[in-house]
Design a protein around this nucleic acid. Structure first.
Lengths: 203, 203
DNA sequence: TATCAAGGCTACTGAGCATTAGCCTTTCCA
DNA sequence: TGGAAAGGCTAATGCTCAGTAGCCTTGATA
């Protein structure tokens, strides 16, 4: 089973309570960081005491790991859907970047935590997350490479261009606010165009 | 005294020992995060025990704060030097972005910690760092605005373009490695050109 | 209606942490 | 040469935290 196949399988369903706990943990991890968030606080956010969390969750580390693994899988899903059946490489890049950026606005907390808390994961979980991340990077880089090979794109460095595209998404996750004065569509559209200029596509 | 004037004043000199401690703390904060770094580890990195640190430093929090405040001031300095006396707005943008990116390669640990550990600062220090960061953002946005006003730049959103430029620097700080296969000059030059295409400058 | 699982709670455990207290050695200068 | 400052050290303090033990209530089911 390849990384991208795995991403398309359904993730196990959560009980409503478990989901509430995960959401609360996500918000707190994003706001103050994993290390600085206490189980007491996570509990309080769903109206129970810290120790009661353990009736639903096996550990704080597990909570972080499941958040991070799921977000990477979701990102793969979104990417696969966005580029499915698109033949033109410039279209594919634009759609991939749009999906990337849209994902980072719609799931900014998950993406934020996913980027920042890698070092808080234990060895095994970190390896799994890093693996998914590399696989996603390769997908984006693959599109850029293909465009260059077909002489549709012109870049000084494929690697640099790909990093730049990926970094824009992370940036969005850091500053985007739903109630801000930049709309999701506006950001998505503009960054999609940025992407094409970045790789020197004509038009 | 404005933010940018302050940045040009000399920062107080550190004793060699204090500097070694700061450097060690910086490395550790970057690697495992502020919360996850212990005073014992910082001490060990300079060959002393944790409590002995307090003969040189007033607190762990202070160590973080001085690292973060100094890096913001250095960034202001570098920017000011880069654009001083440059009249053409496109030149000024390119130089500003080049300086921005170069700074993020040369001081990647400082920049990395400076971006990621804001939430580990106490109230007063956080306010001071956020203040410097906003002031820097305004400098970059100011150049973009000026280019747009002069009809030299064409962007869908000044804010979005400025964020994109700033985010590229942060991205660099996250992935750049001195022994990697992308040289500092290569990255700086390429990103400088990215910047100009991004704002739709002709040529 | 008796039972049992689910899911709360409080009290506790054991560990780790930043920081302080207080002591000792070395070094340097008056 | 003597005394103080600088800069180490160990031991202790006081706190916070993740996770466990064990108890109790509730509600569904047999």
């Amino acid at each position: 089973m390849s990384g991208s196949d795995r991403a398309l399988l359904a993730r196990p369903q959560l009980t409503p309570r478990r989901r509430a706990i995960r959401d609360a943990a996500l918000r707190l991890f994003a706001e103050r960081g994993y290390e600085a968030t206490t189980t007491t606080e996570i509990g309080a956010a769903v109206g129970i005491r810290g120790p009661s969390l353990y009736k639903h969750v096996s550990s704080k580390q597990d909570l972080l790991a499941s958040i991070m693994l799921d977000v990477m899988d979701d990102l793969h899903d979104v990417h696969a859907l966005a580029v499915a059946g698109i033949d033109d490489v410039a279209d594919r890049l634009r759609r991939a970047v749009e999906a990337h950026v849209r994902f980072h606005t719609r799931h900014r907390l998950e993406a934020f935590v996913g980027n920042r808390e890698i070092r808080s994961l234990d060895e095994a979980n970190r390896a799994a997350v890093v693996d998914r991340r590399s696989s996603y990077e390769r997908l984006i880089r693959g599109i850029v490479e293909e465009g260059v090979a077909a002489s549709r794109f012109h870049v000084a460095s494929v690697k640099l261009a790909s990093y730049a595209l990926l970094d824009l998404g992370m940036g969005v996750a850091a500053w985007y606010r739903e109630d801000g004065d930049l709309s999701e569509d506006e950001i998505v559209y503009t960054y999609g165009r940025f992407a094409l200029t970045l790789v020197g596509v004509a038009g």
